[in-house]
Simulated scan of single mutants.
Amino acid sequence: MRSSGTPKRILVAGAAGFGGAITCALVHRHPGLELAAATARSDAGARLDEVYPHHRVPVVLEELDLDRHADGIDAAVVAYPHGASAPVVAGLRERGVPVVDFSADFRLRDLQTYERWYVPHVAPQLLEEAVYGLPELYRDELRGAGLIANPGCFPTAALLALAPVARAGLVADVVIDAKTGVSGAGRGASWRTHFSRVDENVDAYGIDGHRHLPEIQQELGVLGATAPVTFIPHLLPLDQGELVSCYVTTSRPVTQADVDELFATAYDAEPFVEVVATSPGVRDVRDTNYARLTARADERTGKVLVFCAIDNVYKGAASQAVQNLNLALGLPETAGLR
């Protein structure tokens, strides 16, 4: 670590993916950070502003060399898929580098749960150290953290939507209907995200169990809600953007005034959560770190309905990672994000 008056030098590993590239752009323009290096597994040697011209980050993507790239940096963002991320994170932590990890490798606290949904874990010794990177829930723990598990995009939106009612002990049952753009699947092409299949189409996926479900259940449980969770995502013909619609069967009757008070208490002081009167849309939050929420008490059914829109590659990935970097490195939490 260098003196507090100089920009913090950041390595972004996995900079050729959607989230990694946006992270590079945010770091590059950040008043308190410096992009020390950007690495990529498949595009090494290419310029990032040629791979993604619209981000305008004039750096050459390099092949990751931990001994070289970990030297003289203040923190790293690892934007690798699950399984591939853990050994890189472990190597960085062995060298004393604070890390924000995009993958699911350190989000789930229970090793058996992780391995049931993902792959055998190669660095389980780091699970206890990892802090779940949702600042609205874990701000104090994130300050100075050495390893931050950046949340998944669906859990980010769902947990922000449900945290106030979960804390109040109101969740007897919840259905989470989520809709997202194709960028959530990452840069790799597949038949599911092919233009010919996605255009003018909407379909559900992960109906037998989506990998973000145990993450949502884990964090709702921390908040005191252990009720059944039904989570079904849908793919929309959008580039980016995500909307979750949460239908909560409550444990006791509540009024709109009760709901308004819960959400005001939770979010009035939050810099990146907006509670509004009308249903949010994905255009409202595109290319931002904001989550936009509406909560309603439905007197007819006795349910609480909560809607949350985020940009899946910003608040659901890259800009949330920078928010976490700010907290971990002692910078103003909103720096570089407004």
Rank of each mutant, 00 (worst) to 15 (best):
V131W: 00
V88W: 00
R292K: 15
Q125M: 00
G96K: 01
A328P: 04
V175H: 09
G133Q: 02
S251L: 06
H210A: 12
T255M: 05
A44P: 14
T250W: 12
V88T: 08
R197D: 02
V99E: 00
D67H: 06
A318Y: 04
I148Q: 07
G5Q: 07
L223I: 12
D74C: 09
V175F: 15
M1R: 06
D101N: 04
I232R: 09
P81C: 11
L134M: 07
G19L: 08
G302P: 08
G336A: 09
D43S: 15
E129F: 00
L325H: 03
Q320E: 07
L235S: 10
F18A: 02
A168G: 08
S103F: 03
V122E: 13
E261D: 12
P81S: 14
Y247G: 00
A318D: 01
P120Q: 02
R252L: 07
H194E: 09
V78C: 01
S196G: 12
Y114E: 03
Q256M: 07
L329M: 06
A13L: 03
L236I: 02
D110W: 04
V304F: 11
V60M: 11
A204Q: 11
E50V: 15
G184S: 09
L127A: 09
A264G: 13
R47T: 06
A158L: 08
A317C: 15
Y247L: 10
P135R: 07
